[in-house]
């Protein structure tokens, strides 16, 4: 595989000169920034939400199975451990939702400069926290 590695690590610049291609940041010595932190948390919340879809499937399958199974699942979700997991799930969901909107805006070529990116990052974090708390306040009121 030396051939492929060589081809991937070395490229030519616009003048045709051979240059080393840039490497990914070395995480151990890389200062965390709002941009890198929000990016990796988008991935972490995505994987966490993926695990959370197991809960969605369990909820729906129990509802389709029997009264007993659904009552059991609903009581597990209403236990304090269940509520804690669901709280984490909603936080991950609102984070991924809000940051996903940022990603879609970037895909449309908007908000790419650093000040705008930092501003939208702070707004996104605040919005996901507000939405999560709002969800649980309203949730406990209607429960």
């Amino acid at each position: 595989m030396h051939d492929v590695r060589d081809a991937l690590m070395v490229g030519r610049d616009s003048k045709g000169k051979l240059v080393n291609r840039p490497l990914s940041p070395h995480l151990q010595i890389y200062k965390p920034q709002l941009s890198s932190a929000t990016s990796i948390f988008h991935r972490i919340t995505g994987v966490a939400l993926g695990l959370g879809t197991i809960l969605l499937a369990v909820w729906l399958v129990a509802a389709a199975s029997s009264d007993h199974a659904f009552a059991l699942v609903q009581s597990l979700f209403a236990s304090w451990l269940g509520l804690l997991i669901l709280f984490g799930f909603t936080l991950a969901l609102f984070y991924h939702f809000c940051n996903g909107i940022r990603h879609l805006a970037w895909d449309a070529g908007r908000g790419f400069d650093l000040p705008a990116m930092h501003r939208s990052g702070r707004i996104m974090i605040a919005a996901s926290i507000v939405l999560t708390i709002g969800f649980w306040v309203i949730g406990f009121l209607v429960w």
């Binding site: 029997s66 009264d67 659904f70 609903q74 209403a78 969901l93 996903g100 879609l104 969800f135 209607v142």
Partner: peptide, 26 residues
Amino acid sequence: RVTAIALLPLSLYFVASVMILSGADR
């Protein structure tokens, strides 16, 4: 991207549904 855009309204609908169905019986 297409599924992300579809999920914007659908996930809000899902969140509202979960809230409506909290503590619901079968």
